[in-house]
């Protein structure tokens, strides 16, 4: 029932032109934050304009993870880009995202098919 402490975050990246899809799994907390931040910053610096972050396999999210997401939103929006978040419809990750108010700036979507086409 209870997963192991600090299950390492796993990151898988798919790049198609200006769009990057980043699939995260595991626990997105203070320990995982630098690794995720580095990967997302690399995509932004590499010219990605749309980043879809798939959080559906993330089992834990707190304000450390949220801070990384919001920080990347700020960086990318300054360059005219957008971030979309894929999340499960319920569960603690969804609750934390809803409570934080991040959906005001980053849409919470159920699947990649809901990401607006350019």
């Amino acid at each position: 029932m209870l997963e192991g402490a600090g299950k390492p975050v796993q990151i898988a990246i798919r790049r198609q032109g200006p769009t990057a899809t980043v699939r995260l799994s595991g626990e997105f907390d203070l320990k995982a934050a630098p690794q995720v931040r580095e990967q997302l910053d690399g995509l932004i610096d590499g010219g990605a304009q749309r980043i879809v972050i798939d959080l559906r396999q993330v089992r834990f999210l707190d304000s450390s993870g949220l801070g990384v997401l919001l920080g990347r939103y700020r960086r990318l929006s300054e360059r005219g880009g957008s971030i979309y978040l894929l999340t499960a419809a319920e569960g603690s990750v969804r609750t934390v995202l809803e409570m934080s108010g991040v959906r005001q700036v980053m849409p919470l979507l159920a699947s990649e098919s809901e990401v607006p086409r350019t």
């Binding site: 209870l2 192991g4 402490a5 626990e27 907390d29 320990k31």
Partner: peptide, 17 residues
């Protein structure tokens, strides 16, 4: 240390369970 955040979290969760 950052790695101990998960340790504390899961230890409390196990106790609560």
């Amino acid at each position: 240390r950052p790695e101990n955040v998960g340790l504390c979290r899961v230890t409390v969760a196990t106790f609560a369970a």
